[in-house]
Amino acid sequence: MKIPKKARWVLILNKNNEKELTSLSGLYFLEAEQEDLNYRALVQTSEINDGEVPISNFFDPFTLKLLFYFKGRDEKDLNLLVQELRQELAIRNSYYVVHSDLPMFKYPCNQASFEIERINNSDAKISISFRVFKGYKESLPNTLSAQLIDNNWGFGMGLEMQDLSYTHETKSFDIFNAGLEIDPRLQHTLKIAFSGIVTNKLTIYNQTTDDSFIYNGNLKKNNILLLDGVYPLVDGARCGKNTNNGIVRLAKGNNSIKIEGANDFKISFAFHFLYR
């Protein structure tokens, strides 16, 4: 992703391309506002007990509002700008929004609505409200990106002042998660890639969360075992029948990982930090 050189900017990222909204002639980004926390509380109640028993909270979608100023030459310019914004944002697929106020985060969005406050025939304030459908924002770089350790990106992400590594070749190591808990069962992206020699059984054990993923079988050095969220694959083919159907979560902060049953291996953890 190419960051604009101007001081204030807004980018739209999707699978096919990226678009800088502030590259549209006469459009200036003023400010961003994220609405208050929005979540659902799962509770258990009983007719014979007081109150309720909290079980878990789930994050609901929230709104990211971006305010722009448009300075045009005439009313036609303003109408053309609104049409172009709709063309960019009223699309079938979801996309990410990134803005210069918090450039280390990206917001997964799937809807946008407009409010236009005309100043005169050519100028207007334009408010765009994006629906952040996942209920959280993500770190822009993932854990295997060189940008993660760049101070310009790491500021505000909760990264500790330490050497962070997400690729390892030893049987015991730590994985640092700066954001919310990563739980693949909640469709959080976590890709654990392993290549190495396994002669009987491989165990990936997170001592912090007490989660274990076990692969039963042999692996050669050139095989790639990928735990893609809840789906295990060997060289691209599903292999769930050879596993314990386990998952690996990542708690906030340090996670102590142990590898058992493997030699001459490399393992990597690729994910984005999640934030409210």
Rank of each mutant, 00 (worst) to 15 (best):
M1L: 08
K6H: 11
K6Y: 05
V10A: 10
N16Q: 08
N17M: 05
N17A: 13
K19F: 15
L21C: 04
T22Y: 03
S23C: 07
L27D: 02
F29I: 03
L30D: 03
A32G: 07
E33F: 05
Q34Y: 00
L37E: 03
N38Q: 10
Y39D: 15
A41E: 15
A41K: 12
L42R: 05
L42C: 01
V43E: 06
V43Y: 14
Q44S: 02
Q44F: 04
T45A: 14
T45E: 14
I48P: 00
N49Q: 04
E52H: 04
P54H: 02
N57C: 04
F58W: 07
F62M: 09
L64T: 07
K65D: 05
K65C: 03
L67P: 08
F68D: 03
F68C: 03
Y69W: 06
F70V: 10
G72I: 10
K76I: 14
K76A: 10
L78N: 11
L80F: 15
L85S: 10
L85G: 15
A90V: 07
R92F: 15
Y95G: 01
Y96R: 04
Y96H: 11
Y96N: 03
V97C: 01
D101C: 00
L102E: 15
P103C: 01
K106M: 09
K106P: 08
Y107F: 12
Q111M: 06
Q111P: 02
A112K: 14
E115P: 00
I116V: 03
I116L: 11
E117V: 14
S122D: 12
R131F: 08
V132M: 01
F133W: 00
S139C: 10
S139D: 11
L140N: 12
L140S: 13
L140Y: 06
N142P: 10
T143M: 00
T143L: 00
Q147N: 12
Q147Y: 12
I149Y: 08
I149A: 13
N152L: 04
G156Y: 12
M157P: 12
G158M: 02
M161S: 09
M161W: 00
Y166C: 05
Y166L: 13
T170D: 01
D174E: 09
F176I: 11
N177W: 06
G179M: 01
G179F: 01
L180G: 11
L190Y: 10
I197L: 14
V198P: 08
T199C: 13
K201I: 09
T203F: 11
T203H: 14
T203E: 15
I204E: 10
N206A: 05
D211G: 06
F213I: 15
N216Q: 09
D228F: 13
G229W: 11
G229C: 13
P232L: 05
P232G: 06
A237E: 15
N242I: 01
N245S: 02
N245I: 07
G246H: 00
V248Q: 12
A251Y: 06
K252I: 08
K252A: 15
G253E: 13
G253W: 05
N255K: 01
I257N: 00
G261E: 08
A262Q: 04
K266V: 10
K266E: 07
F271Q: 01
H272C: 11
F273Q: 06
